[in-house]
Design a protein around this nucleic acid. Structure first.
Lengths: 153, 153
DNA sequence: CTCTATGCAAATAATTTGCAAGCAC
DNA sequence: GTGCTTGCAAATTATTTGCATAGAG
């Protein structure tokens, strides 16, 4: 087992523990649809787009509107439970669980779309440097790679 | 003068030299609109969105259609003259001249939108590491920062 | 029962496509 | 003159908003 691997396959998140508290603390309600979206994100190996969440839940016979998916991921993002990522020129946002996960980045195959997590972030020192030289206060960053996955080469 | 500064103000590009050759080599024509878009990008201190290019050219009494702006930046991108960048959750693409410029990244103020170029890229070694560990062939990456500029803090 | 959440319709916003007319070479 | 370009209209895609109703606490 390579401990220092920079990538990982997704692990199963520990569902239903923190999110009810988070919702209630924010005066929001624990609903069937929110649980369904969270549950799906937990079970999924890739960050999902709103449409993918919608389609997948439809297949699972969970009745939900696309608009509700958008609203749900926004709430979950506000609460810090979900991260919104923008992959290289993909033209749509994707969402993944933050709960229990390290800050990380992604690489996406431009041919088939396969996404692998990159368990690293070389940007802590760089952030300091940028702050001192630009006078900006850095709040966040995006770092995403594109390329060809082994199958598509 | 700080030589090793990681950021820079835009310099004026040397217009009209390479782009005609590039266009012709690709069997494309040197048109008034393409020259207008290139000229604008050269004169501008920030990467511009399609709408911004359109609006600015309108102000300069250059008659051009928004659709043509989109088609133009795509052609210029194909030819390698222009780079398309996606700033953190901004929801639109921006374009900047590549000609004569080093590979670089950006930081954008989430309050006022001010964008500063970051003349650095710490990712060459990292790219090798990612390639060896993921088996992907890395083609490109995006690295963009958001935060608050000095004025907005 | 009160207030948040959801569904449905419709509005926006960014970008793309089809087609006939315009212009570069 | 031939074929790439452009303008205009319209289609697409991603996302957001308004409003009346359903549902959580």
């Amino acid at each position: 087992m390579v401990v220092s691997s920079i990538f990982e396959s997704r692990r199963i998140a520990v569902s239903g523990l923190g999110f009810k508290k988070s919702l209630k603390a924010a005066g929001r309600r624990v609903t069937r649809t929110r649980q369904a979206v969270l549950s799906l994100l937990e079970r999924t190996a890739q960050p999902l787009s709103a449409t993918e969440i919608f389609d997948q839940l439809q297949q699972e016979k969970v009745s939900i509107d696309l608009v509700t998916v958008y609203r749900t991921v926004h709430v979950l993002k506000e609460l810090g439970l979900v991260a919104q990522i923008e992959l290289h020129q993909e033209g749509q946002a994707r969402f993944e669980l933050k709960e229990g996960r390290e800050h990380h980045h992604h690489i996406r195959c431009q041919m088939c779309g396969a996404i692998v997590d990159l368990l690293l972030c070389p940007l802590k020192k760089l952030t300091k440097l940028i702050e001192s030289q630009t006078q900006y206060i850095v709040d966040d960053h995006t770092l995403e790679f594109t390329g060809l996955c082994p199958k598509c080469q």
